[in-house]
Structures are given as C-alpha cells and as structure tokens.
C-alpha cells in the first residue's frame, strides 16, 4: 500500500494544515509517512506544493511526475498546473476558486477559461467544487482546505472516526466544529459525483 498525494495552491492558502492533518491520519493507521513543505520566498503568493507520502517504507519525501494517486488543489489554475503529476486514472480534487497570478494581473498573460476541458485531456477522475463557498457555509472561509480533504477522503481512506480524531487533534479547539462541518460538506460533494 502506498499513497502519493500532492496538495497544491497559492502561498498562504493553508496547505500546511491540510498536509499535517493527512500526516496525522496516516500515522494513526500505522503507516510510514513523509511530508515535504514549502517555506520562504515561494510562499509569498506563489504557486506552492506540499507532498504527502504514506506506505510501509517511504524514501523520497517528494512525488515524481506521473506517479501521484491524488492531487488536491485549492485553486483552479493550480489544478491544471499539477495535473500532469497524477498517474493514469488518478484523482484530482480541486476548488473552482480563481486567484489571478501576477502575469495575468499585469496583462502579460490570460487566465485560461477552459480549465475543465483541458483537464479532460488527462486520464483522470476529476472532482471540482467551490470549496470556499462550502467553507463559508460551514462558518469560516479559511476552512476550505478541510472541505477539500472531506471531498478527497473517499480516495484517501480512513474511517469517519479516524478523520474526526485527527481533525480534533490538529486544528485549534475553537475551530474544530467549523472544520468538522466543512469536512462533512466536502464529503457530500464527493457523494454527488
């Protein structure tokens, strides 16, 4: 059993918390686990990727292109940017939220409006929903990361009790309920597919 996961987005969106929840989950399942994070300059509004790997024995903390089982993206353009890292038949869960990169803001580039159809060119299972709205519905827009985890949880595995335990253990106490609601709303999205 091996799980290779990428969590991608724009610096500052909360990918570190999401990866730590995943790490805690895999540990609770008795797996070896490695996480690779991004700090420093690339964090400032740039494209960021966090790798999460779990299995019996993990060497490299990163996932090679074409080998990921799951990519969770906090933003639509970033979903397309990392689609090629998935293996054939892999799963992409992404939020339809759009954040304009600087070349688009300055007019040097155009934000693609055909992301969904370009993703279709890859051999993937795709689940897209507005994770920000789900998080807002849950009570805090910053819980979008956990809503995405909820949507991806059927692919990741783990029982509802295990998920609840790791969310309780990882997020600050006053945000536990919001995050559990966000997780449930994300899981609902997965059910719609």
């Amino acid at each position: 059993m091996k799980k290779d996961i990428l969590i991608v987005g724009v610096g500052g969106q909360g990918s570190l918390l999401a990866s730590r929840i995943l790490g805690a989950l895999f540990l609770s399942q008795g797996l070896d686990c490695k996480l690779s994070e991004v700090h420093g300059m690339s964090q400032r509004g740039g494209s960021v990727v966090t790798y999460v790997r779990a299995g019996d024995e993990i060497s490299s903390p990163m996932v090679s292109d074409g080998e990921a089982d799951l990519v969770i993206s906090f933003e639509a353009l970033e979903a397309l940017r990392y689609a090629h890292t998935l293996k054939k038949g892999g799963t992409l869960v992404y939020s339809t939220q759009r954040i304009m990169p600087m070349p688009v803001i300055t007019g040097a580039a155009v934000y693609p409006d055909d992301i969904a159809s370009r993703l279709a060119a890859y051999d993937l299972k795709v689940l897209a929903f507005d994770a920000e709205s789900a998080a807002e519905k849950a009570g805090n827009v910053r819980a979008a990361n956990v809503a995405l985890l909820g949507a991806a949880s059927p692919i990741i595995g783990g029982t509802p009790e295990e998920w609840e335990a790791v969310i309780r253990a990882t997020v600050p106490p006053k945000f536990v309920d919001v995050n559990l609601r966000a997780f449930a709303l994300g899981l609902e999205e997965a059910g719609k597919n």
Partner: peptide, 18 residues
C-alpha cells in the same frame, strides 16, 4: 524512461509582494 504527461502550458505564478 516511461512517458509521463506533459505539464500544461499556462501562466506562471511567481511569488509576489503581499
């Protein structure tokens, strides 16, 4: 050297002043 999918040609997202 197994074939891997190519990255999509899309706008880059460099770090920016917050």
């Amino acid at each position: 050297d197994p074939p891997v999918p190519s990255p999509a040609a899309i706008p880059v997202r460099p770090p920016v002043l917050c």
